[in-house]
Design a protein around this nucleic acid. Structure first.
Lengths: 126, 126
DNA sequence: CGCCTGTATCGACAGTTGTCGAAACAAGAA
DNA sequence: TTCTTGTTTCGACAACTGTCGATACAGGCG
């Protein structure tokens, strides 16, 4: 299959295209429920730091063993937060031998970022 | 004072500049706590729809009486959600005569949007 | 095989959240 | 003033969340 890379690009562009800034038109009820789940996954300091740790890690991915150190919470709690991020569609994960690796799914972040874009800031109005 | 407009621009640009994408470097502990509060305010479907209703309303602001109709929840509940959005710094409000008006603070949305920007989607890596 | 290390799940518990009805407050009208 | 309408606050309650220790699972190594 040579369309693997294209598929990734399509995914990203679709994510951006599907969600115009929420300041343009009212959000639908279903869309709001869906997006709220993603934002809820981002609504905890530990999860935010986990996400940025994973994303900024060398190679774009990190194993759980790299992620438990920087936090004051227990290892089961880290595992729980990673599960929340995964079920929200913000990260992917895979077991490779002894370790489990996590990486960020850029399309999901791009989707939320586009949604929050505020044209008023660029236009200079108000 | 003729620097009123400049002040607004400064505010917006500072918000964008202060928060480079979280995928670039790990988030600090304090910054994560701060940002998590904003995302928590966005983590409810009713609040997301309220925010988009306010932002997309004519003139960029809406009175509470415009906001209670589209929802199935009681009016005190709407008032509660508006309070959450206000305390998170996402909207401003003002009483004008009988009615109370709410508007979106673009700098706050821009800050979160910039934080979530995912360079991997543009670079095409992974 | 048994042991060790890395990770996930379980069960429990305190704290928080979304929701409601009732009541209070704000401001204009009669 | 009293009445009416728009909005917020209060008190209560069920549901959810973050955290922990204990335990279970997965896989490599002796």
């Amino acid at each position: 299959m040579s369309n693997l890379e294209l598929k990734v690009l399509d995914q990203d562009e679709a994510a951006v295209a599907c969600c115009s800034p929420m300041v343009r038109e009212p959000l639908g009820e279903e869309a709001a429920v869906d997006l709220a789940k993603m934002f809820k996954a981002l609504s905890d300091p530990v999860r935010l730091r986990l996400l940025s740790l994973i994303a900024s890690h060398e190679g774009g991915e990190a194993c759980v063993c790299d992620l438990t150190g920087p936090f004051d919470v227990s290892q089961p709690t880290i595992s729980h937060h990673l599960k929340v991020l995964r079920e929200a569609g913000l990260v992917g994960s895979e077991r490779r031998g002894t370790w489990v690796y996590y990486w960020v799914l850029p399309a999901a972040l791009a989707k939320l970022s586009a949604l929050l874009q505020a044209p008023a800031a660029a236009g200079g109005s108000r």
